[in-house]
Design a protein around this nucleic acid. Structure first.
Lengths: 160, 160
DNA sequence: GTTCTTCCCATTGACGCCCATAAAATCCCA
DNA sequence: TGGGATTTTATGGGCGTCAATGGGAAGAAC
């Protein structure tokens, strides 16, 4: 598997360490980055994280904008300026810097959420609320997509 | 055969393991995913499950949205965040995590329902009720459409 | 010296791997 | 075609390995 899937909630110990879920570590290892690329999510009180592939995508995104444009500088600042490369120790744990923890309101537990090509880090309670909201949105979305095609019998990608 | 067909009810043993029906395993094996992609059904107290083909559909759905938009993150959260890649042991059994069992109200038995390209996991009693209801709906529908079309055969498969 | 970080070890519980058994399906052969 | 033999399936249990977590020791920074 080369995608981040599922959610895990792990503890932060009194040294500030937290275990990266084993399956996420596997994906990261294949990805070829010695660590975790991590920055505050733009639209949510959470952290976005991933490996080399995510880093490349961000690069592409920035490079596609006109050089020396305000947009480009702003995007680069927003993404790279706030990013960290988190190291993973030999037991599969990492330490989240205070600045990042603060953005996500993380204190002593972290929920790791797989989003396919990347994953997010959430304060567990906040994530619960966000997930309920997200599920509702997908339900609504599916109704729009699915209206009038139910008779096909084929569940269109989305869930039944 | 490359489709999930028929229904089976198997026991969950005291280690939490349940046998995947052999015919489903065959389909999954051909599909090329080392495990079962599984998530809570959006509209039913059940679990949706499938292999690589199902996973690809979900991927396509997410990738069609603009990168780094909050819509995309929300969709990915609802889809990947609630999913699990269930491993299949060498005896053809798997373990359903508590979070998924809870959504479907599953305790010690599981009904596997083939839906063609995917299948569902139900608590047996709930499935029975759901199936009866679905049949009734089909009967009503047939009346509206006009008698004499029995050839369609009853969609026993529980598609919504 | 103290503080902070990095590395290493211990514990516990969960999970994967192996084997055993019994029931069911399938095959085979007279 | 019928009935026994073989293979597949479903299920139960033992055991070793790995993941998550806590704590300590060695080393670097202040």
């Amino acid at each position: 598997m080369d995608q981040f899937v599922s959610t895990f909630t792990n503890k932060i110990d009194n040294k500030g360490r937290v275990s990266i879920p084993a399956s996420f570590r596997t994906v990261l290892a294949k990805d070829g980055l010695e660590g975790i690329y991590c920055y505050p999510s733009l639209d949510a009180p959470a952290l976005d994280a991933g490996g080399q592939r995510l880093l490349n995508k961000i690069n592409t995104l920035v490079e596609d904008l006109a050089p020396y444009s305000d947009e480009r500088d702003q995007l680069a600042t927003a993404l790279f300026g706030t990013s960290e490369i988190l190291t993973i120790d030999q037991d599969g744990r990492t330490i989240i810097p205070e600045r990042l923890r603060e953005h996500a309101g993380i204190t002593n537990q972290i929920t790791f959420v797989g989003l396919g090509e990347k994953f997010q880090l959430w304060e567990p309670k906040r994530f619960e609320a966000y997930q309920a909201e997200a599920r509702q949105k997908v339900r609504d979305l599916r109704k729009l997509l699915g209206a009038g095609r139910r008779d096909r019998g084929g569940p269109e990608g989305a869930r039944e």
